[in-house]
Simulated assay, not measured.
Amino acid sequence: MNTDLLKYYEAIEQASADMLSAAKAGNWDEVVKLEGACVLLISQLKHAAREASLDAEAAKTKSRIMQRILINDAEIRHLAEPWLQDLDDTLAGREKTLH
Rank of each mutant, 00 (worst) to 15 (best):
E13D: 14
E13H: 11
K46F: 03
Q44G: 12
T61Y: 08
L84A: 06
A25C: 04
L5M: 06
D4W: 10
T97F: 01
V32L: 10
L91W: 02
L45A: 06
G36M: 03
K33Q: 11
I69C: 07
L79K: 05
V31Q: 00
T90I: 12
L40G: 00
L70P: 05
L34G: 05
Y9C: 08
M66E: 12
G26Q: 09
D73N: 15
I71F: 03
A17H: 05
A48P: 10
A56T: 14
A49M: 09
A56P: 13
G93N: 03
L84S: 02
L41I: 03
A56S: 14
S16K: 10
D29V: 12
N2M: 06
K46H: 08
N2Y: 08
A23Q: 05
L45S: 06
K96D: 04
S53D: 13
I69F: 04
L6M: 09
E30V: 15
T90G: 12
A59K: 15
V31T: 06
K96L: 13
T61A: 10
A11F: 06
L91T: 10
N2L: 02
L34D: 01
V31N: 00
E95G: 09
I76P: 00
T61L: 13
L84W: 06
A56M: 07
A37N: 08
K33S: 11
L20V: 12
A59M: 11
A52T: 15
A15W: 04
E57R: 13
D18S: 12
L79D: 00
A37S: 11
K24Q: 13
A17G: 05
G36W: 02
L41R: 04
G26M: 12
L41V: 03
M66K: 13
Q85W: 01
T97P: 04
V39Q: 06
Y8A: 03
A56G: 07
M66I: 15
E81R: 15
E10F: 05
E81I: 14
N2F: 06
I65G: 03
L45P: 00
I65Y: 04
L45D: 01
S53F: 10
S53Y: 07
A37F: 01
C38Y: 00
R50N: 13
E10K: 13
A74V: 08
N27Y: 01
K60Y: 03
L5F: 08
T90R: 09
L34M: 03
A15C: 08
G36S: 06
A92L: 11
L98H: 10
S43K: 12
R77E: 10
T3Q: 15
A48T: 08
H47V: 11
A74Y: 01
A80G: 04
E10I: 02
S21T: 15
E75P: 08
S43N: 11
A15S: 10
V31M: 02
E10V: 02
D18K: 12
L84E: 04
R64C: 06
R64M: 13
C38H: 03
D4P: 05
V31I: 03
W83K: 14
E95R: 05
H78Y: 10
G26V: 13
A80Y: 05
